[in-house]
Design a protein around this nucleic acid. Structure first.
Lengths: 231, 231
DNA sequence: CGCGAGCTTGACGTTGTTCAACTAGAGTGG
DNA sequence: CCACTCTAGTTGAACAACGTCAAGCTCGCG
């Protein structure tokens, strides 16, 4: 049964991403009129690649994966997003199509803002436009780094990167219960599921991390960083 | 001996990139005051990664490679640029640093525009800002595709991609004299020089291409595209 | 208890890198 | 004009990295 959520008004939204803080009350109210909120269960697809980009998404709770269906039925995960990240990126103001899929890893709530409303605000609010600019620009820069890491480092370095990424950017803690499966850790690190498992075990044996099931503890940050750098 | 070039005025520049056509005469003249043109020899470095991003570059003749120094002294080439591409991308309006190096593959002339002048025009001209936005956005999208291709395809598919890229986007012809070395073809395809040579030879033996030295002819486009897709 | 999904492990084959030797052509100096 | 050197290209053989396959395991759930 569909759940229609009473949209939290942006104006009092406590998830307000830094970008939206730049908007005036009037602008926020304008966005508000063309916005709705949706709740997703773990595993559900939020955006499907190839589709038309009609809305920007803003994660208000939970974690999602941004991924694409690659070759030979292997997925590639670009990154994970948590509140209050914006989803839209490439395609916006260009071909207006979705260049990737987005799926919920946990229970997720997300707000959807019509593309046109977004474009309007960008025209009227210069600082907001600048922030959007920065956001996409940073994204490109992240992808550049990933290109180099994933093509030049070997598996140990790539898994170390993924662990550091989870700990530093996603869960912001040395201990976390991962919402990603082993397969998804592999999809983040561009390798097979079996390889990711083997390397995780090696790190565990070397006492760099401890992990049972999905509970991870980074025990030797320096060692991991060293592995990440030496490739 | 340094060569100081009399700057061609943007207003009558026949290399004018599509983006600059959106500017008014006044805006172009404003840019013009804060612009200079430089000539480079093959192999010379135009931008060095890590440096401060003080100027945008616009290639007016020749071909450059946009690359980064990866791990183990291996380079990775993101893409090649020809007139009239803009160089600047990530870092602009953000940390103002160069996230990659740029070097001349042929003799190159390039115009340099002060960052601040560029930022001003972006503020005053909305359509120009939108084009910049699209440009970065497309870049991100290209990087996403590359991420998947380079991590999931194997060598034959990657070399096929590089050949198709050179033919379709760089030289815009089925026959071309490449300005890239075998090493650089390898750096574009994320593999070792030896491997790239071997695969090129296989393609030659299979009569997909002919190549002696740096003269390439794409003889069987369909076959190459098929190799690119099957990975 | 049985079932299924995700996880784990080992054996094996493939893919791709590294190393080392060799070639060809382009410059350089005697 | 001939060594000489230097660089880019080429080739083969050995080796390491990584994926695939197949089997077994664990745990939650009906």
């Amino acid at each position: 049964m569909a759940q229609f959520i009473n949209t939290t008004f942006c104006t009092n939204c406590n998830h307000q991403s830094s970008m939206f803080k730049l908007l005036t009350k009037e602008e926020l109210e304008r966005l508000n009129k063309r916005l709705h909120e949706v709740r997703f269960n773990p595993g559900e697809i939020i955006f499907k690649e190839g589709g038309v980009l009609t809305h920007f998404g803003c994660i208000t709770s939970g974690i999602v994966k941004v991924y694409t269906e690659g070759f030979n039925k292997r997925n590639f995960i670009f990154h994970l997003l948590k509140p209050t990240s914006l989803i839209g990126g490439p395609g916006f103001m260009d071909d207006n199509r979705l260049h990737y899929s987005v799926a919920a890893l946990t229970s997720v709530t997300a707000c959807f803002i019509e593309i046109d409303a977004m474009a309007e605000v960008i025209k009227t609010n210069n600082r907001f436009a600048t922030e959007m600019f920065k956001m996409i620009s940073r994204q490109a820069s992240v992808y550049m780094d990933k290109l180099v890491s994933l093509t030049q480092k070997q598996m140990h370095g790539r898994i170390a990167d993924t662990l550091l990424y989870l700990s530093a950017f996603v869960y912001e803690s040395n201990e976390f219960t991962a919402d990603v499966s082993r397969q998804e850790i592999a999809d983040l690190s561009a390798m097979s599921k079996e390889s990711s498992i083997r390397i995780l075990k090696e790190f565990k044996d070397a006492n760099y991390i401890s992990c049972n099931g999905n509970d991870f503890v980074i025990k030797d940050l320096k060692a991991l960083k060293k592995v990440s750098q030496t490739g």
